[in-house]
Amino acid sequence: MITAAMRRCLGAYAALVCLLAVLPVLIIVIESFTASDYVVFPPSGFSVKWYVESLQREEFLDSALLSLWVAVIASVVATALGTLVALALVRFRFPGRRVLQSLFMAPLSVPGIIFGLALLQFLASWGVARDMTAVIVGHVIIALPFAIRFVTVALIGMVANVELAAQSLGASPWVVFRRVTLPLIRPGVVASLVFAFILSFDDVAVSLFLATPGTMTLPVRIYVYIDQNYDPLITAVSAIVVMVAFLALGAIERTLGIGRLFGLR
């Protein structure tokens, strides 16, 4: 259905979109190799001193590790909960379904700043001490709409008859889900995991208010640092995050294949 010529055109187009996507990232990476002490583009001279400096800053490393854990836990929890919700919303008809559907989408439109403030006030009024869990809960809430949407899209596209078939052959519900439904909705589940992870890893607004001195995520650390100093340290930290992410993606690609993970044919 898609001819070779169309495929080439699409390929060229996708390459162009990718180039535009990475443009700002490239600028930051280039700036980070500057020899000067302030950020300017094009950079003056070449040096890796800001990388050396940033690796010596324990607080950035601590925050990066914290962010990583928060994002991993939040994305897994959000995807698991989101999958259950999507199953209920797509596979069943019950009163209030549409209302629930809209309600679960609501965090999408509530700006993080106000949600973070509201949640902080709420927790404080109940005397709940905030630790990493508070940040994770906040991230799960903002990631849930994505998880639900992505899994829903995958479920809608899937033919429910397959589940019925498996079931009539005597498979238990768990086996049906594990062996039939899950593999078929994997693209949606993986997309949900990825976006929940990235939303959590990128979030400033919600974490800014939920963070305590011991639980400052990397974006908050950067936000607070940049409020006072805009020096190449921040560009180097950002560049390191991108590089580490690409190394990780490379490893996943080698072992599993990202495209395969998304289940894209």
Binding site: A124, L208, F209, T212, M216, R221
Partner: peptide, 15 residues
């Protein structure tokens, strides 16, 4: 506890 001047004030009010 590092923050911006006003985000800290917001925190003080909220807590």
């Amino acid at each position: 506890s590092a923050g911006t001047a006003l985000s800290q004030l917001s925190k003080v009010i909220a807590t």
